[in-house]
Write a protein that binds this DNA or RNA. Structure first.
Length: 286
DNA sequence: CTGGTCTCCTGATCGC
DNA sequence: TGCGATCAGGAGACCA
């Protein structure tokens, strides 16, 4: 379940491994994981259109690796881009991690004639999206909200306050703020001492300040720890992240709050399993 | 337009 | 030990 910190760790690793190297597409095992800008999830039913190898960076020299929210984009010198969305279980693997795993590998490249790069995704919620230029990429990413790592409190307030939904659901909406998934939504709300069911319309400036700051702290800390590994996530070289060890609420329903000792509550909010501290995160917004 | 629910997909886990 | 049921979750589809 890669969220912003995990994707940022992958981006940094890929940047070091790929920039200046030429990719050669070895094979695509499943065409249906390839999407388009107008249909990001790909052709999941019906006949699949074949994709030109060049659109998947075949014989392209990698120039940059960018990220916005949970999306990655690998850019080539000739301004061809490949957006990678990892979904639930997607991985980009390199080196021995790439060559050792064969199951669920949907696409594979060779890096500069040597090492291997593999896109692996057991649950197939992820996709690869060819993009013809940086300007098209920027237009596509414009539809996402600001990146959660650097969102401005006033911007966050503006985006949330018009919505009549639980703040937890708001954080999970990538058009409001990009990069937050279930883990970091719960963690940042806990740190900001805001109840996940707080209706966004009741937000005031101070709450947005607290939430934006908590998002930044939680996400930056997770990046430093190499991300959270629950099941599938690992870095391109196959290393798992350690942030799970410092989760304060996620996955801890029924256990004691690490701040006040109260028993952590759990319920579904915004359609997702949610955990919070009934004492630290009061029902009424403070 | 908005917000809630359904759906896709497979591996891990649980109860029997 | 084996097996079916259940759950997890990103995000588009769909509906009231």
């Amino acid at each position: 379940m890669p969220e912003l910190p995990e994707v940022e760790c992958i981006r940094r690793a890929l940047e070091g491994l790929l920039v200046g190297r030429t990719l050669s597409l070895d094979h695509i095992a499943r065409q249906d994981i390839v999407g388009s800008l107008s249909n990001p999830r790909g052709q999941r039913r019906g006949p699949v259109k074949p994709i030109a190898d060049e659109q998947l960076l075949h014989r392209s020299v990698v120039d940059r690796v960018l990220r916005k929210g949970k999306q990655l984009a690998i850019g080539s010198l000739c301004d061809r881009w490949l957006i990678v969305r990892l979904g639930m279980s997607g991985q980009l693997l390199t080196g021995s991690a790439a060559s050792e795993r064969c199951d669920h590998v949907h696409a594979r490249w060779t890096i500069g004639g040597g090492a291997s790069l593999a896109f692996r995704d057991a649950r197939r919620f992820g996709s690869l999206i060819p993009c013809p230029s940086l300007s098209e990429l920027e237009a596509h990413w414009q539809r996402l909200g600001p990146d959660a790592l650097s969102i401005d409190p006033m911007d966050l307030l503006d985006r949330l306050r018009s919505r009549k939904l639980a703040v937890k659901a708001g954080l999970l909406n990538q058009q409001i703020v990009a990069g937050v998934g279930n883990i970091y939504a719960d963690e940042s709300l806990f740190r900001a001492r805001i109840h996940p069911r707080t209706v966004c319309t009741s937000f005031r400036h101070e709450h947005a300040v607290r939430l934006a700051e908590s998002l930044r702290e939680v996400l930056a800390s997770a990046i430093e720890h190499g991300g959270s590994t629950l099941r599938d996530y690992c870095s391109p070289s196959g290393i798992t992240g350690s942030f799970r060890l410092v989760h304060q609420v996620y996955g801890r329903e029924g256990q004691c709050c690490l701040i006040c000792g109260a028993k952590l509550s759990g319920a579904r909010v915004g359609g997702r399993a949610t955990v919070w501290c009934p004492t630290c995160q009061g029902r009424r917004i403070k």
